[in-house]
Design a protein around this nucleic acid. Structure first.
Lengths: 191, 191
DNA sequence: TGTTATCTACCAACTAGTAGATAGAATGTC
DNA sequence: GACATTCTATCTACTAGTTGGTAGATAACA
């Protein structure tokens, strides 16, 4: 019943997400998406009346995707070090398939220009990531897998900031900074 | 002779930098600057024919400011830990006086939409920061002040990413994440 | 027949940027 | 010193293109 519709809707979110990650929220327009998908601007407005609606949908889907990732048996069953690598892979993926940064990083720098609902959803996204990493590092240290000074929530900020920043610097300097930074984080959690 | 002119020119760069740090390069217009300074758009075009010229001037001035900071006797004469704190202060300043992120972070996420000359200048800015931090950490470790695993240029990426990301997350969540992250970096350089 | 999804054809506001007038200051010339 | 000229910096007024968004026709579908 909703087959074709959902398809278009999904394609619009896909294209929107791609452009958002590449150019930032103020760096693309409905015309860009229409061109990319070979449809008309007004068709996008049918599915997402305002640009804020589309932006919100992109962030909401990303949050769902992450919580789905967390709950996957395959992931949950993993050893700490493997799980950390898998988490890094989420970020590395952006780098590989398109010259993008991560969603949280992109939304954070555009933050003041975003409509309220998108700001709230962005807060939620960043909180999700920080909370998960905090919990993951804390448990890992208690189990004896990880070792780091101070409290886990501060270390979580460090790890996430390095993911974000590593992606951003890698793109700008076009050198393998992300992988070096990820390796350094692994070192810091061992020593 | 160039008194008034330079004054206006400087004021335009000031206003442009402020808006750039707050909203990103695609998040402000000449009209915004004109309004803020109480002048006309065309006066801005007189000093900076295109928006790219203004953007370039903002980055160039920031690079000069940083290299000036590095060369200041007061800074050069400082002990390592004090110098690190002073470096953190540069970033913390953005947070204090306006809800901004740092210039390198802002330019990095807008990167693909920037005109070539601005991209090149951004590369230069990020390189300046990374090179300085790399050298600073390396010397500090050789002197026995700092301690960290791996090579200093990887650790430099970590420190800078945490500055950038700490600022960004602090603004979004409106909680004192920046100071916590800075403290954690200090811990990581001790242990 | 009513609903869903797409289209064509608009619109007002805003974008970066240009052309040309004008006022005042600096400079050259007699 | 007086006068003309050039330069600097700003203004008003405009343009072409883009932005997000709307109205209404039309087709496809259930």
């Amino acid at each position: 019943m909703r087959r074709l519709t959902d398809n278009t809707r999904t394609k619009i979110i896909d294209a929107g997400e791609k452009l958002l990650l590449k150019n930032g929220f103020n760096g693309f327009s409905y015309a860009d998406i229409a061109l990319a998908l070979g449809i008309k601007k007004s068709s996008i407005h049918y599915h997402f009346p305002s640009k804020a609606d589309l932006g919100l949908a992109v962030i909401q889907r990303a949050r769902q995707r992450f919580s789905g990732w967390c709950e996957r048996r395959e992931i949950a069953a993993m050893a700490d070090w493997d799980k950390l690598d898998r988490f890094f892979e989420i970020y590395r993926h952006y780098l590989t398939k398109s010259e993008s940064v991560c969603l949280s990083g992109a939304m954070q720098t555009d933050f003041t220009t975003l409509p309220k609902p998108m700001q709230e959803e962005t807060k939620g996204l960043v909180s999700d990531l920080l909370n998960w990493m905090d919990n993951f590092l804390d448990k890992g240290r208690k189990r004896g897998t990880f070792s780091f000074p101070g409290i886990s929530c501060d270390q979580a900020v460090v790890v996430l900031a390095v993911m974000q920043g590593g992606l951003q610097m890698n793109r700008v300097l076009d050198s393998p900074i992300f992988d070096m930074a990820a390796a350094q984080i692994r070192c810091l959690l061992k020593s």
